[in-house]
Nucleic acid binder design. Structure first.
Lengths: 242, 242
DNA sequence: TTGGCATTATGTGTATACAATATGATGGAA
DNA sequence: TTCCATCATATTGTATACACATAATGCCAA
């Protein structure tokens, strides 16, 4: 069972009920860890049985997730885990570049020693998860790193937006990342944190830009479609027949 | 009765029900036009009577508004129109500077003639509203201008975030703006749009920065508290006693 | 009066019943 | 077989009933 460390404790602003938050956090983490892959149907009654609550609660959680664009609610046809298109994925990363740059600058100004130490622990945990082969957990912890960075910025609106962007990024990575070693990302987080601790804004922003570009470079966004376009996938079959 | 032009048509992503949207849009506009000032209690049953729907629908609308931080839901105590603190207000404007800069750059790249013409109409409408003394409508239309700009950027995540920031800004202006003439703002919108149409990124970003600074300069954020901190308000009384 | 406590009333939180809609199956006709 | 219509089933959308928490009222005692 997951430890929920991320979503639950990061709970801040809008006064919602604990029950909601628990359901929300569980679904959220499951999506980020890819136990619920993009496109998965989210049946309200089934979820209600699982969490022993009524559909009312489930619907609230799904509504919140849909506001964060992590879940898509199709009228009369239920909710599914979002599966961002290539175009949407590109937009998300453009937005992230903007946000992360601002967040990094603010984080350099406002970071406390305590927060930095917490982030160091996160990096270690992510490292462990990766070595243990728990890729889902590694992705979630990586997202948490960026979310905590936003928290360090001390800017609530930016933090809220970052939450949405980070979750979407996780979905995008789940959909579009080509098989590769993810070790380098760990070092990047570490170096980035060093720059922030040293209050070197220039360096921190530079490293952040590079970091995001590395993540993007591992995605198959510009190239050919992977599995969405059936015509491309089965083009060889058609060739045989002709 | 308000024309709802803004929120209703700007409805895009998450598939929600038309009924929801109507209620949401009405409340949203009422808040932006300050017919529902910050702090106003939003009674679920009363709203249900007004819109002839059950509390279920009202609650969904309020939940959405609370996700956008425009409404605050206090557990067991109902929803009220948000009344941002000075600190929160400052954060909102920091976030806006970041977002608007990115949006402006993208808008210069992607703006179509049709969209620019639409914005010109908005400016005219805002002008008319101001001259007619309908300050509430003027504020809402001004917000719509910035929201449409975000739409022009072609970036959905930035657009969604901008929606939240613009509504919060309206609340902040409602709370903190000192009495003054707002005419200059109109010309600023116009000039900004000219720069975007001319594809002059540098100029457009410069004008946007100045525009935001002008708005901020009209707010009473740095100075003394108006009514929130009772200790400050009644400090003279305490002095008398001592 | 004034302060504290019990009671009442109002309004929110959750579950559930019912209605509306989409999905999948069945069967017949071309 | 293939296509279409019809029906059966499952799932979502909405309203409502009840449980519960908070706020308001009134009472009594000091």
């Amino acid at each position: 069972m997951s430890d929920l460390s991320s979503s639950v404790e990061a709970e801040g602003k809008s006064g919602s009920m604990p029950q909601d938050d628990i359901v929300y956090a569980h679904i959220f983490d499951a999506i980020l860890e890819r136990r619920l892959p993009p496109g998965t149907k989210l049946n309200e009654e089934a979820l209600g049985d699982i969490f022993s609550v009524s559909r009312t609660i489930i619907r609230r959680a799904l509504l919140r997730l849909s506001h964060e664009q992590v879940v898509v609610i199709r009228p009369n046809r239920g909710a599914v885990v979002a599966s961002p298109s290539v175009e949407e994925a590109k937009q998300v990363f453009i937005a992230r570049h903007t946000l992360e740059d601002a967040i990094t600058k603010l984080a350099v100004e406002n970071a406390t020693t305590k927060q930095i130490n917490h982030l160091r622990k996160l990096i270690v945990a992510e490292n462990v998860a990766t070595k243990q082969g728990d890729l889902g957990k590694a992705i979630r912890l990586s997202g948490e790193f960026h979310l905590k960075l936003a928290e360090m910025s001390g800017n609530a609106p930016l933090f809220n937006f970052q939450r949405s962007l980070v979750s979407l990024s996780s979905l995008i990575i789940a959909q579009y990342e080509v098989a590769t070693s993810t070790h380098c990302v760990l070092d990047e987080h570490s170096g980035l944190l060093d720059a922030i601790e040293a209050k070197d804004t220039e360096q921190a922003c530079l490293l952040m830009r590079e970091h995001l570009q590395h993540i993007e470079s591992k995605l198959n966004l510009d190239g050919e479609t992977v599995s969405s376009d059936l015509h491309v996938v089965f083009s060889n079959v058609l060739n045989k027949k002709s």
